[in-house]
Amino acid sequence: MFIMIFVFAFAKANAQTPHVLDTIYANDTKNVALFFPEPIRQGITGSDNFVFTYNREKEQYFGLLQAKPGKESNLLVVNRNGSIFSYIVRYKKQLSKLNYFIPLSNSIGNERPIVTDSIQAETSEKSIDNRTYYYQKFCTYLLNRNQRIGRIKKRNESIVLSVENIVFDKEELYFVIQIENNSTLDYDLNFLNLCIETRQKGKKKSLQRLYQEPIYRHRLPSKIVEGEMVRFVYVLPKFSLSNDRRAILELNEKDGERNIKLKIAHRYVNNPN
């Protein structure tokens, strides 16, 4: 769902005349609905002040566009059948049109994946870059949302660690994390780990921990200065927890003792937003 991957995606692209893109207007008070001839598989905007939302779990024919004041950008959408649609998007305070019914004739081309052996390695590298780009865009979107999954918070000597939101998208879980430094000393971050803790039953009760390595860390700080609050996102492969397991977020201070272990109950992980 990334802009770069479609540069080489059109048949006979070099022979085509330049395509003049239509403009779609949106604002931050109304949803502009875009209805496509086939279900949406991928869609992304080129700037953070535009947000295009669609059902990522069950493909549907429509998506919703909103915008904040700022420079114009572009919207790129791929349907399930590979048809590609591209538009200029602009902010407009007063909207005269809220619904766009887009015909197949508006498609600028069709996706053509390259599978030849000679460029397989290059395609793999581009795929990794594109995936990272998507994580970056979606994490930024989550940080701009005012959504909470519940009260998951713990404090130690004026340092507050909390999980604001847990979101499922495609095959990943996104943990939106916040650290507040209400003390008079800067907080140097040593590590922040996420692990799964299992309670062993029987006469000799014990705990086993399995650490989960994030696929991507978005805006993870190395220092939280006094009086500052930071928010960032951990992206992990999707997982679920049984009743005897829970997630643990471990915050550790470098050259200090203001450490926090935040327990996240299985119900939060199993019921993400």
Rank of each mutant, 00 (worst) to 15 (best):
E157T: 03
N181P: 12
L192G: 00
K204T: 12
F175M: 03
E171V: 05
K204V: 11
L189Q: 04
N182T: 04
N130I: 14
K205P: 01
I177Q: 01
F138N: 06
I166G: 03
R148T: 15
L194V: 15
N190M: 05
V163W: 00
D188E: 13
S158W: 07
T198M: 06
E157N: 10
D188R: 12
R199H: 12
N181I: 06
I166M: 02
K205W: 10
T198N: 11
G202Y: 07
R199A: 10
R151C: 07
D186N: 14
Q136K: 11
C139R: 09
L194E: 09
S183R: 11
I177V: 13
L161G: 00
I128H: 06
D186I: 08
E197Y: 06
N193R: 15
S158E: 14
G150Y: 04
K203W: 13
I149S: 02
L185G: 01
Y141A: 10
L161Y: 03
Y133E: 13
R148L: 14
L192W: 05
L173K: 02
S127C: 06
N165D: 04
Y141K: 10
R199T: 13
R155L: 05
S158M: 11
S162E: 03
T140V: 04
Y134P: 01
E180K: 11
V163G: 00
Y134K: 14
Q136L: 11
K204I: 15
I177P: 00
E180M: 02
Q200F: 10
S127Y: 05
I177Y: 00
D188C: 07
L192D: 05
V160Y: 10
K204N: 15
F175G: 00
L142M: 10
F138H: 11
D186W: 14
L142Y: 04
F168A: 05
F191I: 07
E197A: 12
T184I: 10
G202D: 06
Q147A: 07
R155D: 12
R151Y: 07
E171S: 05
D169I: 04
R151Q: 14
K204A: 14
K126R: 13
N144H: 09
K203T: 10
N130G: 15
G150I: 13
N190S: 13
N193P: 06
L142W: 01
N165K: 01
F191A: 14
D129L: 09
I149M: 00
S158Y: 10
N165L: 04
I196A: 01
